[in-house]
Design a protein around this nucleic acid. Structure first.
Lengths: 95, 95
DNA sequence: ATAAATAGGTTTATTTTATAAACTATTTTA
DNA sequence: TAAAATAGTTTATAAAATAAACCTATTTAT
């Protein structure tokens, strides 16, 4: 086996990795907050959140805050595991 | 990105990162060796080495070993710095 | 000596990703 | 009431990764 194990392509992306990192620390965050923290464009963020959700790495809940829509994101247990495993693999590349 | 500083796109690629990681440890390696260690296809490796060379991250020297051509790669000081800086930025995502 | 296989790659084409631009719908402010 | 802001989504484009096809020369087998 190579020391360079494959890196989960879903996590090996700057924006998605930032999102996951953020969600790991706060455990819940809405679209706007993530957008500000990551400095991503809304369109890009929308697409990437969708991919993370489809992979089962995050859960997305849509609701209203007052009259305005809010999109709330939460990392899943599966997502945490994927993240941890990604980091373990990555370490072999950077140390 | 405040805590999420941009990750050098040239290094944030599985194969190129593996190549750089490898070259950091051995300081010189030929195409075939890198190909075996990274388990990359020749075509993909050829393209990615080219990009690293054009960025000034590695030096590529072509010569002959006996009658056969060999492509030897070596990381540059600039490449080492870029790698270290990439790793520093990456840490903010994964810890 | 000729054919087939191997070495050591490069070039081109295709697929996948990332990103930006444009758009929708509602709500608030001037 | 028109303009601007909020909160996103959808679609189009640019860039990247990867695979497939190709090339030249060298060995090895027949």
């Amino acid at each position: 086996m190579s020391e360079f194990k494959p890196l989960d392509p879903l996590l090996h992306s700057q924006l998605r990795l930032a999102v996951m990192s953020l969600l790991l620390s706060v455990e819940e965050a809405d679209f706007t907050f993530i957008k500000e923290k990551t400095e991503a464009t809304a369109g890009n963020l929308s697409v990437q959140l969708d991919k993370l959700e489809k992979a089962g790495y995050i859960e997305i809940e849509k609701s209203f805050r007052g009259k305005r829509p809010v999109t709330t994101c939460k990392i899943t247990k599966f997502g945490v595991k994927a993240f941890e495993s990604y980091v373990e693999n990555l370490k072999n590349y950077i140390t």
